[in-house]
């Protein structure tokens, strides 16, 4: 199933997730007003794992939501086929809360831009923070993650693939070279 060079094992993903959960709680100085919102699709299981880790460590249940940013993408005119919409399910009332967006890979920043656009249509959070499993660089927008599982230097000719048990049957992160695709534009997966 995985074919590229492995840069994170299942165990490393597990430890990174726990670390992210600690950082998030520390930054918020607790869990009050905290909301975890995963970006479809791999951000969603990651958000749930982080929430589970918080429950284990702090004994607090943090609400989790799922955000589909498909309708907010700025590259719809570039893809060959409309991405399949996966659905948005937010805990009601994001007003005044601290929303932590969770995604698997931070790249150009366009997905996060879209996610923030989507989020503000639902209300006015007190703050929006960003937690990602992998930051691979090459930002195209002024966006920075608050919490990073692993920083991975990459070139634009490389592809970072995150696999999660919930969506892919196994855990792992790998990196591979892409030869034919000059632009990081996929039909089904959001950019960045």
């Amino acid at each position: 199933m995985m074919s590229g060079r492995r840069i994170m094992t299942a165990d490393e993903i597990r430890r990174a997730t726990i670390r992210l959960s600690h950082e998030i709680v520390e930054k918020q100085a607790g869990t009050d007003g905290l909301l975890l919102i995963g970006i479809q699709r791999r951000g969603v299981p990651l958000a749930r794992r982080i929430a589970a880790a918080i429950l284990e460590n702090e004994g607090a249940r943090v609400p989790v939501g799922a955000l589909d940013i498909t309708f907010y993408r700025d590259d719809l005119s570039l893809v060959a086929q409309q991405p399949v919409v996966k659905g948005t399910e937010l805990p009601s009332g994001i007003d005044g809360r601290t929303v932590v967006l969770v995604d698997d890979v931070l790249y150009t920043g366009r997905t996060i831009r879209a996610a923030m656009d989507a989020l503000v249509d639902f209300g006015r959070p007190q703050a929006i923070r960003l937690a990602v499993l992998v930051d691979r660089g090459h930002r195209e927008l002024p966006i920075r993650a608050d919490h990073v599982g692993k920083n991975v230097p990459t070139s634009r000719e490389e592809l970072v693939r995150v696999h999660l048990e919930e969506t892919d049957g196994e855990d792992g992160v790998e990196i591979e070279r892409i030869v034919d695709v000059p632009e990081p534009v996929g039909a089904g997966e959001p950019v960045g």
Partner: peptide, 29 residues
């Protein structure tokens, strides 16, 4: 703010069934 809405450990986020199958590529339009 009203009470905690979700239980992180037990809540099911709605993920359409098509996404459950590993490596499934949804057929597009």
């Amino acid at each position: 703010m009203s009470a905690v809405i979700d239980d992180a450990a037990t809540t099911d986020v709605v993920v359409p069934s098509v996404d459950v199958a590993p490596e499934s590529q949804p057929v597009g339009w």
